[in-house]
């Protein structure tokens, strides 16, 4: 096998890592002996790598491990406080949601009036979003969805509507909790950390 200069230079990285086959290595060495330019270039690269490998290790201070453990404990305490805050937030959300469900359940007879009022409000929101521009289109879309939902609920009759509203509030609660947990997880670990 005859090796030209271009191939020799391409192979030099594999030669340093010992990844050439015996046959390739032999051809590589043969070219190295006959071509002065390639030999010099390869030896420069080898020297640079050897110099790098001679850099000494850096020793840490005596209190390194103790400092790490102190920081670990501080981080753990901060994490505990955040978990407690999160738990209290979840509890408040659950209590509010449960209260809303109870109120809705007991005031079933008021439902048509409530739905009517809310629908009017939502229509106003839709109109408002048109005036205020595209940044509020999301609100508009949500409002339209809600109105469709309530209208459907009304056609089911009082008990049906009450049940549907109850399911809706519960679903909303679950979404809020999931969103809160996801947000906390992202904030704590950072997107760049991937799996660690």
């Amino acid at each position: 096998m005859r090796v030209r200069c271009s191939r020799f230079r391409r192979w030099s990285r594999f030669a340093i890592d010992g990844e050439l086959s015996a046959k390739e290595r032999e051809a590589f060495e043969r070219h190295r002996l006959v071509c002065g330019d390639c030999r010099v270039e390869f030896e420069r690269l080898l020297r640079a790598v050897n110099l790098l490998a001679r850099l000494p290790s850096v020793e840490s201070g005596a209190s390194f491990t103790a400092n790490v453990m102190a920081r670990v404990n501080r981080a753990r305490q901060a994490q505990g406080e955040e978990a407690r805050r999160k738990a209290s937030w979840v509890t408040v959300t659950m209590v509010v949601a449960a209260s809303a469900c109870v109120v809705v359940g007991w005031s079933e007879w008021m439902l048509p009036a409530i739905v009517s009022t809310m629908s009017d409000g939502l229509v106003m929101l839709v109109k408002g979003s048109r005036v205020l521009g595209p940044s509020l289109t999301l609100i508009g879309a949500l409002s339209a969805l809600l109105r469709a939902f309530f209208e459907t609920a009304l056609t089911l009759g009082r008990s049906g509507a009450s049940y549907a509203l109850y399911v809706y509030v519960l679903t909303l609660t679950i979404i809020l909790i999931a969103a809160s947990l996801t947000r906390n997880a992202r904030r704590r670990y950072g997107a760049s950390m991937l799996c660690v």
Binding site: V58, S60, G61, F64, N67, V68, R71, V72, A75, Q79, R188, Y189, M193, C195, V196
Partner: peptide
Amino acid sequence: AEDLAQEVFVRFYQALPR
């Protein structure tokens, strides 16, 4: 470098469950 290295271990500790 020492500060960064300590932080590496703190983050590693926090990532232990995963």
